[in-house]
Nucleic acid binder design. Sequence first.
DNA 1: CGTTATATGGAGAACGTTCTACAAATCATC
DNA 2: GATGATTTGTAGAACGTTCTCCATATAACG
Lengths: 352, 352
Amino acid sequence: MPIDDKQTRQRNDRVTIRTVAAHAGVSVAAVSKVMRNAYGVSEALRAKVTDAIDALGYRPSRAARGLRGRSFTIGVLLIDIRNPFLPEVIAGVNGVLAPSHYQAMIGVSDARVQLETSLIESMIDYKMDGLILVAPRLPAEIIAKFAVQIPIVAVGYHAAGATAFDTVNADDQRGAEIAVEALLACGYRDIEMLSLGEREGHAVSVVRQREIGFRRAMQRGGLGSSAPIGKIPIASPKREEAMRRFLSRKDRPRAVFCWSDLDAITLLSLAREMNVRVPEDLAVIGYDNSSTAALGLVNLASIDQSGRELGQVATRALISRIEGRSAAEHIFQIPSLVSRNSLVRSRDTEQG
Amino acid sequence: MPIDDKQTRQRNDRVTIRTVAAHAGVSVAAVSKVMRNAYGVSEALRAKVTDAIDALGYRPSRAARGLRGRSFTIGVLLIDIRNPFLPEVIAGVNGVLAPSHYQAMIGVSDARVQLETSLIESMIDYKMDGLILVAPRLPAEIIAKFAVQIPIVAVGYHAAGATAFDTVNADDQRGAEIAVEALLACGYRDIEMLSLGEREGHAVSVVRQREIGFRRAMQRGGLGSSAPIGKIPIASPKREEAMRRFLSRKDRPRAVFCWSDLDAITLLSLAREMNVRVPEDLAVIGYDNSSTAALGLVNLASIDQSGRELGQVATRALISRIEGRSAAEHIFQIPSLVSRNSLVRSRDTEQG
DNA sequence: CGTTATATGGAGAACGTTCTACAAATCATC
DNA sequence: GATGATTTGTAGAACGTTCTCCATATAACG
């Protein structure tokens, strides 16, 4: 068997598609067909091949696959790994992917545009099959440019006009409205929003969307069109300083809507420290319904946008796009309120 | 120019090494040499090639690279993305990698051995250059088997005897000792540990190490050799049930050491709910010094093991291994105590 | 000038897949 | 049983790199 000799010559013991073909006594192409369950494979052939695969413990090389066809990997780009909302999204993605033969690889950009770009490029260079970008910082035109090379779904990124890629979002405008409506229903009138400072002014960001919703709901509630929105810097220690300043203001409002739980929880901590009672002196409502908010010690009312569900929906959208859909989809989920003690103190949890 | 024609024929506009070579008027091999800055490249050639690269915006395909040589990617395997300790490790890894030409790709195993195995295999199949496994569930022999195929550093995994791969750990025995010593110093005698239930009995796990340290410190403190260790299940709702049972026990100890902040914080929440005062009725000390523990509302004393530093050290170890080191290294960091109100109430934060 | 060393660039064979053409075999149909 | 349609399997050319030889060109030396 001169053909077999070629195998024996290999010094490396990696099991390749050729090893399998030789072991099963069929061609390389046949094995490939079985792997990709392509058309034109008899039961007999399939059996022979899968037996050989099992016997040898063959795993196709992802690198080689990527060079030619599918790599069966999708890339997930996370802006930041500390925000407890993001792990939920990942959980959703993994949940949908688990039963399929796709796998997720995650990159963390730490909110740096430079790193974000190079990670996306890497993922393209790896010939990944598709990308899920979670709250990306890049402008829509750049993302559209990448989307020519690879299917992309953006999560937490408002670009309803995009035609080159899909978006999956919680309706952030509506979420903010729900928060305001809840505060109004509790009888609060003197309401302010604490939003994110910095220059991430892109209308695409969830923050700006929440501001829009806040303004609209306030106006609708008859509370002036110039509803006050405070800006909190993102980085310590300026962040804490700004919050302290807010808490010690003479004209501090009666209720506050924070753009994210992360801020709301820090605010709660500082309020306790500065003897501002919540909710008696200040009602607080956050956004994300993170696990920390649910803690008895924290008890923060929050808008739930189910990151897990967003992750699931985004993954399904991406797969359908990988499998051929070309028209852009822009999907919205409706968030909901989770009421807790920071909004109004419930009877059964009177302070112990 | 018949050679150039071959280029023009390409329907796809991807810029490959061949495009660059043609544009610079040199051979493919020359470009490759410049990319890998290999020996035997004149300044003139280098200039021509880098000019062409800049002009065309060329990026080498990672997939193709992986097929032959280095891919300049390292894989990080996370057991769970919800534990706030892990993002810190990632931050450390990314910090060290940022200035280099390496990049990190993260996989999340959700603590499932099956998924963990297949992710490791995928990363190998991608021809990644090395792997950092954070708190893996796999037994040491299996990891050693993988380590033959790819450089591996395990973090939060006690296998000091391993010769095939490196480990980087906080000294978990010592950490537990520090916790006990702190409790003893505060005058508590009636001390118990709340550990993790389930069958993750491998001596490799950080949990078991902390138990050993706890026992030793208790014994050294003259508090019997059979120091009581309670087991808390990992999943809701059994987890909360077990904690409630602990809190309402008649013979509840005066102080408790929790194997992780995650548990300690839930315990704190339930204690508040059940009118058990902390630290007056029960002193609590956790492990990880997570950001939640540091919140004013939570104020949990904890053992700090700087995940960021572990990530940094692990990354440096991995790179040195990739670059040729073959003798195994087992590195330890010494954890430290962060005292907060759950241990002993400080004067300036008397309950508001 | 001839000989040998050294520096520089190039040809072309891997790497492990996918996938297009095509050949061979089998089945239907009249 | 001849013809055409369908099914099943194979050869072999990509894919975009790396890297091992080789072929020059230049320098060094007697």
